[in-house]
């Protein structure tokens, strides 16, 4: 058991080191940081609109670059091992193939945590700048000065603690995408195929819940169609589990229990994904 821990820790460290020393992480992270830094260029009319825009912009940047990072870095990491044949020296060691896949996922979840932390801290800095601007504007506005209560209301909107929950939900979503990317990597022969398929799954996953409801509630759908949609919904992820983050962005402040659906859904999905990925990876020959 101890040896297993050392093996997994080593492989996890290897992927983290790989991403930190190679360009993939920076190629994705630097544009994300630059995008965030363009935020002050956008100005809106009302305080409420400004707050919404800043929040959406920061979250949107984290979300989109997070998805790219989760998919591209995972696909690259595994396909690099296959293409550069590092996999031969790794799997020649007494390491199980599930340990290899699991460690890749674990390493990616560290990288994503790090990336979200960096972008989150940067976003907090932008929020602080915005707060400062709001106070200055409120103090400087002689005709309609904001009351202390109104100002506090705006501050509460900027520093809504539920935004951390939105980040956590985003993190779960990204980890799910890492899982699916690993699954495709186990059968793919090129990283391009893996990246493309994972992105498709991400897009189609957003339609899953509606497709499922349509299949279950509509009449007059052919049996073949029902089976087809049914099969798709069994395989595909349902991204609507992560819509809680959108509601938080719209100003909602749900309790911690609202994290349960997204966490539980991610957890169960990762379980079957790891099982299936291991099955496929074990059956794979390395020539």
């Amino acid at each position: 058991m101890r040896a297993l821990g050392f093996r997994v820790a080593t492989l996890t460290g290897l992927i983290v080191r790989e991403l930190l020393r190679q360009n993939v992480l920076y190629l994705i992270l630097i544009p994300a940081v630059l995008t965030l830094l363009t935020l002050p260029l956008f100005t809106a009319l009302t305080f409420e609109e400004q707050i919404k825009f800043t929040r959406d912009f920061c979250y949107g940047t984290m979300s989109i670059f997070g998805v790219f990072l989760a998919i591209i870095a995972t696909a690259q990491s595994i396909s690099n091992d296959l293409e550069q044949k590092t996999i031969f020296t790794i799997l020649a060691k007494p390491i199980d193939r599930w340990e290899y896949l699991f460690s890749k996922g674990l390493g990616m979840s560290w990288i994503l945590f790090l990336a979200l932390l960096i972008l989150g801290v940067l976003s907090a800095g932008l929020f602080a700048l915005q707060e400062k601007g709001l106070i200055e504007a409120a103090v400087g506005n002689a005709t309609h000065p904001l009351s202390a209560q109104e100002l506090q209301g705006l501050r509460d909107q900027i520093w809504n603690p539920a935004l951390l929950m939105a980040l956590l939900i985003l993190y779960f979503k990204l980890i799910l995408m890492v899982g699916f990317t690993i699954l495709f990597s186990t059968v793919a022969s090129s990283s391009l195929f893996t990246i493309f398929t994972s992105l498709m799954i991400y897009v189609i996953g957003h339609l899953q819940s509606t497709a499922r409801e349509w299949m279950m509630s509509s009449e007059g759908i052919s049996v073949g169609m029902k089976w087809g949609v049914g099969f798709m919904t069994v395989i595909l992820p349902d991204m609507s589990f992560y819509e809680g983050a959108d509601r938080i962005l719209m100003g909602a402040s749900p309790g911690l229990s609202s994290l349960i659906p997204s966490f539980g859904y991610t957890f169960f999905n990762l379980f079957w994904i790891l099982g299936l990925s291991t099955w496929l990876f074990e059956s794979r020959d390395f020539r």
């Binding site: 609507s240 169960f268 379980f271 079957w272 099982g275 299936l276 099955w279």
Partner: peptide, 28 residues
Amino acid sequence: MKRVLLILMIVWGGGGKLFYEGMNLSPE
């Protein structure tokens, strides 16, 4: 033995996935 364990993982995880999805139907 390993195969059985993998099948159990797939069935248990997949079952959990479908259970959650069943609960998530029709947001009002």
